[in-house]
């Protein structure tokens, strides 16, 4: 389970002001909100890549905000992260990119690594792409390699930052299906930040909405669609009139 208490963070101006988020163990959780509302920052805070100004973050009961860098490294080893811009290492080929977490974090042998990378690439419909360089891939292919890298260690917690941004509707649908299948198969806790509301609401178990740095809604996708709060209603249904 993930829990944040009164999380605050500012970059010159406040981005998060007292965020209280609870993600139950084993759920696929969607995080939505208007642009620049701090969704990506939440993911980086959860992964310990950014330190909060105030508040606490509990990952499986441990408060990560009080940890030193070395202790945080151990927590991060149990987290998969798909970055908004994929963050593929552009000096490594696709196979080495995906194998990187396995090499750094596990003691898997070369054969096992090769096998698991091949299985991962088949899973994201890019079989045989190991020797390609990231620079030569299309946007959708890079996204899928990023997802393969984030999920290869089968971490108990996986964070996805805009897994479908800039993709065509068919590809983004496939990516959301992939995320859900993956999460169901491993029983991991997963948090997905996405602006693709249709696909997100059709995929996740629970959804939370961030507005002006705080959580304004938390519930199932059906509850979100039926929400009465004007801001949530406007955002979920994409209306032009409303408080936003």
């Amino acid at each position: 389970m993930i829990r944040t208490v009164g999380l605050g963070k500012s970059f010159g101006q406040p981005v998060l002001r007292g965020l209280d988020l609870v993600v139950p163990k084993g759920t696929l959780y969607g995080l939505i909100g208007p642009g620049a509302s701090g969704k990506s920052v939440v993911l980086k805070l959860l992964a310990g890549l950014v330190r909060p100004d105030v508040g606490q973050i509990f990952i499986e009961g441990q408060d990560t905000t009080k940890m030193g860098e070395l202790a945080l490294q151990k927590v991060r080893a149990g987290i998969g992260f798909q970055f908004q811009n994929n963050a593929l290492f552009d000096y490594l080929n696709v196979g080495d990119n995906i194998a990187f977490p396995l090499r750094r974090l596990t003691s898997a042998g070369a054969d096992e690594i090769r096998q698991r990378v091949a299985e991962r690439l088949a899973r994201v419909s890019l079989p045989g792409f190991e020797p390609r360089m990231p620079g030569g891939l299309s946007g959708g292919q890079r996204k899928r390699v990023g997802i393969a890298r984030a999920t290869i260690t089968q971490s108990p917690l996986v964070l996805f930052d805009e897994p479908a941004a800039g993709l065509d509707p068919v590809t983004s649908r496939k990516i959301f299906d992939l995320i859900r299948d993956e999460q169901r198969a491993t029983g991991a806790t997963a948090v997905v930040v996405s602006s693709d509301l249709d696909n997100l609401l059709a995929t996740v178990d629970r959804v939370g909405m961030i507005l002006r740095g705080a959580l304004v809604f938390d519930g199932t996708p059906d509850e979100a669609r039926a929400a009465t709060s004007p801001a949530v209603r406007q955002f979920v249904h994409g209306l032009t009139e409303g408080p936003l």
Binding site: N85, G135, L137, S138, G139, E162, G166
Partner: peptide, 24 residues
Amino acid sequence: ATRPRVVPQPKDARGTSALGDLGM
């Protein structure tokens, strides 16, 4: 990768932005 994709237009010879998008 994240920029909204546009149909590649025939551009000035020094067309610079499309490099990433033509990667496929």
